[in-house]
Write a protein that binds this DNA or RNA. Structure first.
Lengths: 210, 210
DNA sequence: CATTGTGAACGGATTCACAGCC
DNA sequence: GGCTGTGAATCCGTTCACAATG
């Protein structure tokens, strides 16, 4: 029985990587995998992988390794992907549209159920089968579909207001692409994925003087 | 004189945040800022900000704070943004195109100088003023423009091959959007910004059972 | 006297080493 | 014999407390 204790943030960031590797192993018909093999596939150390999993239970067999299907299903449960997760995208510019399409193709566990914008020229058009709605529709929509995760791709100036709006109606986790440091309530998690800062910090490592 | 000692990765990730805040303060004509004010604007603690900056020198004035313009210019130097940085985007799908446009608008310090793809229907078309080139042109291009940073937005199956190609001709830092764990040489930095894993780890925090 | 810069204390995550088990 | 699970040791970044100083 997985104990849902507070696991370190870094552990939580690695679980989806394990999940992807296990998905691939299961697809290839491989039944058992050792922490050493997972290490080779993920780049994390074998000890770290074992410790990570130990936060949630003992899923392996000593002398043998981990049953791939069993471990995959456990990780799905731990992350909370065993129930369908509905998320919304706020901001339907080029980036918002691209992320929506990208996710539909690449993420088997997560459904984008709504895309929102304010631009009258954008509202009403479609991304795949999704119609872009006005931001004013967010509260009603979030409640109807029990949305708890939002992706924000609006301009920096509008981002804080959008955050206030979505956290106000039940969203508990935000993936923020706007180049801004945003304030969120205590119980809301936000992850900044701003391309600008990401690229700038990479440049530090690429500069000739090491 | 900034000592270019090894600074923790986490410090390097915060520098661009400080830079953005300082850019804004300078634009608003504010001459001096304290670590406490930077803390309020960034969400990091004042002590942490002072320690971060101390890795590179003593840039403040005791009793007063930091000169905004001076500190901004120092951070630009430390990151390596004082010389123009040319980067390329490999993969001109929806995401690659969106990131290219996004960066042109939002990142004053970084120029995307080339975009590459293999699809015959895509090669030859344009994103803004940039013509999309075939991947075969990468080596020549990277050398001509001294490119040391690449953004990768190709499908997962093609990502490792692209990494091998670009690291083979001088690229030292990679921002990877493909859902894959990639192998890079010792001296190359890679940062994974895969939407799939990012979203999945957020879902852990959004699940009702905390 | 407010604020920086920093050694010391703290805490948390990773690594090590090995006991436990198939 | 081989691999997992885990307490102990280690490492590293953050926080604390205060000395230094314009």
């Amino acid at each position: 029985m997985p104990r849902r204790l507070a696991a370190p943030k870094q552990v939580i960031k690695r679980l989806p990587v394990y999940l992807r590797i296990l998905d691939d192993l299961v697809r290839r018909g491989i039944k058992v995998v050792s922490s050493r093999e997972l290490s080779a596939a993920s780049g994390f150390t074998a000890e770290q992988i074992r410790k990570d999993l130990a936060h949630f239970g003992a899923f392996g067999t000593r002398g043998t390794g981990y049953n791939t299907t069993f471990l995959r299903d456990k990780i799905i449960q731990i992350i909370g992907l065993d129930r369908p997760t509905n998320i919304i995208v706020v901001g339907a510019g080029h980036l918002g549209k691209a992320l929506t399409r990208y996710n539909a193709i690449n993420n088997p566990y997560v459904n984008i159920v709504g895309v929102f914008d304010t631009d009258p020229g954008t509202v009403g058009s479609r991304i795949g089968s999704l119609k872009i709605l006005h931001l004013l529709k967010i509260p009603e929509f979030v409640k109807r579909y029990c949305v708890r995760v939002a992706i924000i791709t609006v301009p920096a100036e509008a981002a804080q207001q959008v955050v206030n709006q979505v956290t106000g109606c039940g969203v508990k986790a935000i993936l923020n692409f706007a180049p801004a440091q945003l304030q969120v309530p205590e119980d809301v998690h936000i992850h900044n994925a701003d391309l600008t800062t990401e690229l700038q910090s990479l440049i530090y490592y690429a500069t000739p003087g090491k």
